[in-house]
Design a protein around this nucleic acid. Structure first.
Lengths: 206, 206
DNA sequence: AGCAAAGTTGCAGAGACTGCAACGGATAAC
DNA sequence: GTTATCCGTTGCAGTCTCTGCAACTTTGCT
């Protein structure tokens, strides 16, 4: 099983499209009606698919609202490993995350929807936080690889990955509470700047 | 509605006991049989309660396996606010978390069980991570209060709370992969030490 | 065109979860 | 001591989530 980096075939593209369609349908319906007034059947219908097919893409209804796809994760770790070897790991993480966010606008769109949906449905907050777990683990492995440490014996890789997602989550929170006015990449960058500054109590300038 | 800090009445104690009984039953059964071979009915039976009662305590089967109770969270934030005002916020968080872990052994027992259960049931990992969300939010509010910042406008409080739980989660991971040999409080302390050291790549000494 | 691999769908069934109403034990007021 | 009240427990009925399986359709390749 080798990883093929061919231009993705029709098959893959259709699958990704279907996934996005379902995700968007789920988010929009939930934004309108609230989480408990949307059934999987509704979502499937809105996406012109069978309910059974929904579960081929998402393990649960809530997953469709907060999930990050495996492909995106692999893209992140790939880029992380491609950073110059001398770079400080935290810097590399910042560059990769910010870089990715600056690129794809369509993803940002879904992300915004997602944050809007989570806020009035607090049950989803743990889910959202949990959905970062997979990415975090993958990033930790990549960091371990970069630094020659061991994910299961050294604190460093997991801690660094966890701190990076902490920055991301913080930025997402501020993004939403600020009505998405500030550009998300900038917010993430700011959060990392706080980390660089050593997490000392900030000066209040407002 | 004021917060009563009376010695908890019989009623409260019984509720907490019931909750723990259910939690332990759920964890032990899942440890034996695996997540998908345990039903809520099984758990309720093992705890000598009706299945319906289970859902009076936990919103879902998985919740019983990873949930942290509201009371514990309030205890944490209470202690955080009671720390000396001059103390650096990260230091205060470290002291509170480590302090709490050094105290109650029974809780550690459940925590160990929980980690043992999550490992062979990866579906639970996001849930576990998500279960920290509530605590994190509460801690962020407390930090904001301590530092005079705004949870919804400044990155600092959420970032700090998220970093603290990152340390905790990292410690939990190492605790498990090390077969629970090292004392958890020490591991948490170590993780915070890494944070203090500025997240620079560690020297490899093994 | 024709074969093989992979995706979609329907179906049936187990189990998760909820609202409601009845029951019962503890508490408090009289 | 009796009565009124609160609050947790339980059973029940019903909806929805989620899964395995088998039939069918589409895609990718020759």
């Amino acid at each position: 099983m080798t990883i093929t980096h061919q231009p993705p075939g029709l098959r893959e593209r259709k699958k990704l499209a279907a996934r996005r369609t379902l995700q968007r349908a789920a988010l929009e319906l939930t934004a309108e009606r609230g989480l408990e007034h949307v059934t999987v059947e509704d979502i499937a219908a809105a996406a012109d698919m069978s309910p059974r097919t929904f579960f081929n893409y998402f393990a649960s209804k809530e997953d469709a609202l907060v999930a990050t796809d495996q492909q995106g994760i692999e893209q992140l770790t790939g880029r992380l490993l491609a950073r110059p070897a001398g770079e400080a790991p935290l810097e590399a993480l910042r560059a990769v995350l910010v870089g990715r966010l600056r690129e794809d606008a369509p993803d940002l769109d879904l992300l915004r929807l997602c944050m809007s949906v989570v806020e009035p449905n607090p049950v989803l907050l743990p889910r959202l936080v949990g959905s970062f777990a997979a990415a975090e683990r993958a990033l930790a492995v990549a960091v371990a690889h970069r630094t020659g440490t061991d994910v299961d014996r050294d604190a460093y890789p997991m801690l660094l990955a966890a701190v990076a997602t902490a920055a991301l989550r913080t930025a997402l929170h501020l993004w939403r509470t600020g009505d998405f006015a500030a550009p998300l990449p900038d917010l993430v960058d700011d959060a990392f700047a706080h980390l660089d500054a050593g997490l000392t109590a900030p000066v209040r300038d407002h």
